[in-house]
Amino acid sequence: MSRARTLVRDTGERWRRWAWRLAGYAVFLGAWQGVSTFLVEGFVVPPPRAILTEMGGIVASGQVWIHFGATLRTIAIGFAVAYALGAAAGMLMGRSRWWEAFLSDWVLATLTTPGLIFALVAAMIFGLGPAGPVAAVIVTSFSYVAVNVVEGVKAVPHELVDMARAFGRGPAPVVRHIYLPFLAPYLFTAVRYGFSIAWKIATLSEVIVGTAGIGFMMRQKFQEFSMTGFLAWVLLFFAFALFLERVVVQRGMRRVLRWRVTAAVR
């Protein structure tokens, strides 16, 4: 197939996907408006327009930066620590069956335990303030990173490592040019799942013990029974998570994994 025809087909495909995505939003918002207008009182399920106005107010007042800043700080610190620990544990478990025996039950335990439990334990240990949410984020997202890295390390193509050894390349170039590029998709998946867990736990912890942050604001709006305010924060949170996924994670993945895409279109 010619390059021009492939381009036209890809462009058409992209437009069709966007059309379906917009249709999804339109149907969802229409249903929401319908429920708000005909089925329940507006203060229980406020119409989309009211939520949008509230979101605009939150942005204009500058509150959004204060509380997103607080939550992002919690996530950045917690997830960075979890990622470093999880990647190290995953490397050890993937390369040594002794380390796997040592760590695997603990990783499995943290993976299967509901995040709420860690949020509550952290709240009891650290009390009010930012330390509890950070600790809860570390414990819960650690295992998601570790599990993905273990799988990647176990699947590293040893024939490539042998090739490098046969040509006299030492451990440092093997890690840089074979392990890291091969593990890139696993590391991205770890970021994706670990980060989504980190968001949830950070917000949950802030609902319980936060003194600032998105979760803290949700708790405040819940106590005021302001469904409009509550949903406005929820949607701001959703918009930000979507931005991170679509713009930061997916673009990063495309960039790092472009060799796969190029090879697939030959």
Binding site: E159, G168, R169, P173, H177, F182
Partner: peptide, 26 residues
């Protein structure tokens, strides 16, 4: 020593030229 394997054993994430450059420190 140079080694040619049963399968090519190229690094799929590096260009053809970069695959040759990878072994040049030898």
């Amino acid at each position: 020593l140079g080694y040619v394997f049963q399968s090519a054993r190229l690094l799929p994430w590096r260009s053809v030229l970069d695959n040759l450059l990878f072994v040049q420190p030898a």
